[in-house]
Amino acid sequence: MKFRYVPLIAAIAWAGWLAAAPGGQEPAKKDQAPAAASAAKKEYVGSDTCAGCHDEIHTGFKKNAHTILETNKRRGWEGKACESCHGPGSVHAESTSADDILSPKNMTPAAIDQMCLACHKNQQTQVGRIQSGHARNSVACTSCHNVHKTGEEASARQFRRPAGVNQNCRQCHMDVWASFQKPHRHPLPEGAMSCTGCHNPHASFINRNMRLASGQQPGCFQCHSDKRGPFVFEHAPVRNEPCTICHEAHGSANPRMMTRHEVANLCLECHSNIQSPPQATTAGGIAIATHDLRLPRWRNCTACHQKVHGSNVNGAMLR
């Protein structure tokens, strides 16, 4: 059984079922446009009506990027920007009840995403969204973004400061933030970097939502350009494994954020391989016998093998 065909077969089966399912599209369409779901009973009343009660929001909204909906004819929401997200407001305007208007507070994450992505799906940042962990775990857009706030409280402005981004990510990823309290770490607590410097929270088609640099290389190389290569003599794990095979990217008690307290342990755990049957082969190779680990000078591999990320000169990465 070739496991690689399991998802493909399943995908074809799903596609077939979708195509065969009569009227299967109808409920999805209803979900896609929640604002229009109960349009038969409700009517659009325009943003000026909303401003009658929600003057504070209406005033602030004029400095919000979404205000373009209010004036742009092509987008189809001219004069009723509020209702582009909250749906027709005639019933709510009469009853003033929060139950009569669409609000993210009362919607499922999937419905919130549908509402936002109705306009924002087709954007560059959303490519790969389907693969991303946030999408899989139903983390709605409004978990991170606020829409009405202006000034310092607006997401758009908050996310322009690295500290603002970090503060937001930390809400859920407390365990990651704890790693940044360790002595050897990237300078996020100082506000010199942000989580989004390395990760794309919307989407990425490589693991851990990693941002890409210069085409399709991992985002680590954005700052560490000297490790980017290509090198005449490559150290293969740098290329075909993530940097985390040797480094704890968030923070560590070990120098240089290594995953081991001593360089020797890190290297020898791979470079100590017995030739194995092909199906179990792992790369490495045995360190030569002159490497007498009883002597300290041999225990610090990088003192000699200093170009461990790849060398342009020497196959043993001595220079």
């Binding site: 799903w14 079922w17 409920p27 999805a28 693969q131």
Partner: peptide, 13 residues
């Protein structure tokens, strides 16, 4: 060379 493709089908609501 890298490539990726993804599809999300909403069978129903």
């Amino acid at each position: 060379v890298s490539g990726s493709g993804a599809a999300e089908a909403r069978l129903n609501s």
